[in-house]
Amino acid sequence: MANDRTVHQMVTAQWLLGGESIYWTGSAWSESFAEGKVYADQAAADAALAEADAFVKQRKIVGPYLIEVEMDATGPQPTSARERIRAAHNATFAIDHGSWSGRIAD
């Protein structure tokens, strides 16, 4: 079984300006992990990663790479603690923001 296991992958990166983690949907970048396109074969994943390079050159994104995901009934899931935390866009504990509720506008 281990021999013919299909590896599912996604392309992830960060926005250049804000650094938020983003996922390639096949046609655009999304901050939602769930919207990331899953590639079941290596050649397609590599091609998608190569495509991401154009966005690097346009200074939209930074640091694209492939991540392995696991498929379950609800869709793709991150396979490492690191990618789970990235996908959540936040720390895993409740942050004390004090009275702060949003960035102050000019």
């Binding site: 004090g98 702060w100 960035r103 102050i104």
Partner: peptide, 9 residues
Amino acid sequence: IARRYDKGY
């Protein structure tokens, strides 16, 4: 700076 450019901490 924490309030204006970050998340209050």
